[in-house]
Amino acid sequence: MRYYTNIFAVYLTLFLAFIVNLLPWFGQGISWRPDFVLLVLIFWVIRAPQLCNIGVAWFAGLLMDLATGGLFGQFALAYALTTFFAANYQRRLVLYNIWQQAAYVFVLLMLSQLTILILKLFTGHDVPSWHYFFPSIMGIILWQIYMVASGQQRLNQR
């Protein structure tokens, strides 16, 4: 299978993910909504590291910080750290099958949430309940649904 990746596709999907993140969620959905921007970032970092790397992730995180109104730079740091672990092991990751990849992506999603949690604890917030990690679970479910539905054997660029 041959994938066509270009820089336009990367930015378009990131833009759409950002819009979805900004959607006004109400009710139960709030605690379950996954971080779409991070999912798209991880996807592109594994698929096309030459187009989307830590710098792009960092800037996307900065925009998220603006949208959430939190401390400037916390999402940026979390995204940079997460995409680092995706980019650093990218050559190994593309050899795994989609279920092994999903396990690793789940670790990455949790890592991003943990980074923000640690930053929050430093600024004097309480430890949240375990519901805090729901977005990661929802995120990996969506990831895997997409992977299986699109019939990909593994996520590599060839």
Binding site: N53, I54, L71, A76, L77, A80, N88, L119
Partner: peptide, 22 residues
């Protein structure tokens, strides 16, 4: 692939820590 991932991470992490402090 350009700069090594670790070098990029160090650069951007330092930048975001600086932003947070400021």
């Amino acid at each position: 692939r350009g700069a090594r991932p670790f070098a990029r991470l160090v650069f951007f992490a330092a930048l975001s820590l600086a932003f947070m402090a400021v």
